[in-house]
């Protein structure tokens, strides 16, 4: 039968990536939504690049950067003892970069769609920016947050090119489910390829379905 480790690895990667993305994306999306700095178009472009860049291109440059004999990779190795090339940590870093727009864009849209008066009202009521963010803004854009979380999670599950370039194919360490499918097909083991695929398909389908059901309810709840 099939090995379970690629599936477990896939979900571990997706969970960790989503968590890190959520922490990074909220301040970044807030900044992108409200800042008027000239540099903004540049940052917006960089955040959106993974949407259009072939995953192999991103993977290739990350691989070069993470190379322990290179400048950055060497610095990481010597001073922090971290090796990102062909390691799970490397996969996490690459996935975070690769799925960044999927988390940032919905949250940014969520911020923009909130009436500006929410923020102003909270400030006039004496609340700091942080209190305003956590008690007023974020609770009123739950569906944007949920969309961001799910898209980032699902997108991480589905990635292949970057993972293959950065992680290689080390069983139990970097061999995630999408790579396992590719492996199985190459070895003409269509049975196990089918099992992996079917499991990935059902899980992602179920997650997305649940989200759309919840978001749909939320929307009708608001307009009632």
């Amino acid at each position: 039968m099939i090995e379970w480790s690629p599936l477990i690895l896939t979900f571990k990667l997706a969970c960790i990536t989503t968590l890190i993305l959520l922490i990074i994306a909220i301040p970044l999306a807030h900044w992108l939504a409200f800042s008027r700095v000239r540099l903004k178009p540049l940052i917006t472009t960089l955040v959106s690049m993974p949407l259009v860049l072939p995953p192999t291109v991103l993977g290739f440059y990350l691989l070069i950067a993470f190379n322990p004999s290179g400048t950055f990779g060497g610095w990481l190795d010597n001073y922090l003892g971290i090796r990102l090339a062909f390691s799970f940590e490397g996969l996490v870093v690459a996935s975070v970069i690769y799925s960044l727009p999927f988390m940032v864009h919905p949250i940014q849209a969520g911020f923009v769609n909130l009436p500006n008066s929410f923020k102003e009202a909270a400030y006039v009521l004496g609340k700091s920016r942080v209190t305003t963010l956590f008690r007023v803004l974020l609770p009123n854009m739950k569906s944007s947050l949920l969309t961001g979380i799910v898209l980032a999670f699902a997108h991480t599950i589905g990635e292949f090119g970057v993972v293959l370039m950065i992680g290689g194919n080390i069983p139990g360490k970097t061999k995630v489910a999408s790579v396992a499918v590719y492996d199985a097909v190459e070895a003409l083991e269509y049975g196990s390829a089918n099992t992996y695929s079917l499991i990935l398909f059902s899980i992602t389908f179920t997650i997305l379905l649940i989200v759309y059901l919840i978001n749909g309810k939320d929307i009708t709840g608001l307009t009632r």
């Binding site: 009436p115 008066s117 929410f118 102003e120 009202a121 006039v124 007023v136 009123n140 608001l222």
Partner: peptide, 13 residues
């Protein structure tokens, strides 16, 4: 200051 906004700006949550 007390400010009453045109759209009231009540927090829905």
């Amino acid at each position: 200051v007390g400010f009453v906004f045109q759209d009231y700006a009540l927090f829905p949550n």
